[in-house]
């Protein structure tokens, strides 16, 4: 059983943060809310999303699992204005999702969850450094780096205690330093890793500018990116594997 009413804004934020990595995903319809975990086919980026029942106008579920084509569901959700409500209801018999937006009824055929990529185990990593900053600073870093390079280095200077972003292009370079004053919080630790901008750009799209974003970093280790949406009732964790630096 699954029946929920949710604002279009909340639903699209949730879907967007997953669709930047995968086209199809499994959605766990738990009693306490929705849960999605997915990893991209190359096993480089992972997402773990939860959206509490309280983020919905109304929510009823008893622990089912459905598989959805994200782009189609996003298209439908895109039909609603941001303030509008979307009603979702699962028909267990036909395995279809009925979606209603102000009189518009749409029936979405679901995908057999078995045919979707396995959900990942989120690796337990001990990452020594933590940077907490505003979403718009993430955006600024990524956009700037993208102008010169395909990669971006994220790191923490332990001595001077600042977080830095480096991008080296063939001719031009970008460097950005954010000190404690610019950041919301900083836990200093040995951290320097290089990441693919392709992935980071996509993840950045899903990060709201006013969100408080936490980055956990290590040396040549994956980065964990956390942020909340829907007034903190939704939580997204991304994990991105580093590029191995050869010298």
């Amino acid at each position: 059983m699954f029946k929920a009413i949710v604002s279009a804004e909340t639903l699209t934020s949730a879907l967007d943060s997953v669709s930047v990595l995968v086209d199809e995903c499994k959605i766990h319809l738990e009693e306490e809310g929705l849960e999605i975990r997915a990893v991209d086919p190359a096993n480089v980026g992972m997402v773990d999303l939860s959206l509490e029942a309280a983020a919905f106008e109304s929510y009823e579920a008893d622990g089912g699992l459905i598989g959805v084509d994200l782009s189609r569901l996003e298209d439908i959700a895109g039909m609603a204005d941001s303030g509008q409500l979307i009603q979702l209801e699962l028909d267990e018999e036909t395995r279809k999702l009925h979606i209603q937006i102000d009189g518009l009824e749409y029936t979405l055929a679901l995908i057999d969850p078995d045919s979707i990529r396995q959900e990942p185990d989120i690796p337990e990593l001990d990452l020594p450094a933590r940077v907490v900053l505003e979403g718009k600073d993430v955006n600024r870093s990524v956009t700037a780096a993208d102008m010169v390079s395909d990669h971006i280095a994220l790191g923490v200077d332990e001595g001077e205690e600042f977080f830095y972003v480096d991008a080296e292009g063939d001719t031009d370079d970008v460097h950005l330093e954010l000190t404690r004053e610019d950041l919301i919080d900083l836990q200093v630790g040995p951290a320097h890793s290089l990441f693919s901008l392709d992935y980071l750009k996509d993840m950045n799209k899903a990060i709201p500018g006013d969100a408080e974003v936490t980055l956990d970093l290590g040396e040549e280790f994956p980065v964990k990116i956390y942020f909340g949406f829907a007034e903190g009732l939704g939580q997204v964790t991304y994990m991105l594997a580093p590029r191995i630096q050869s010298d």
Binding site: V39, A42, N43, V44, G45, M46, P120, P123, L125, S196, F221, P222, M239, A241, P242, R243, I244, Q245, S246
Partner: peptide
């Protein structure tokens, strides 16, 4: 092992961690 590989293979996978 990665020293001589091309760009594509520099990307590690999450399974490595």
């Amino acid at each position: 092992a990665t020293a001589t590989t091309d760009d594509e293979e520099n990307q590690s996978s999450l399974g490595d961690f």
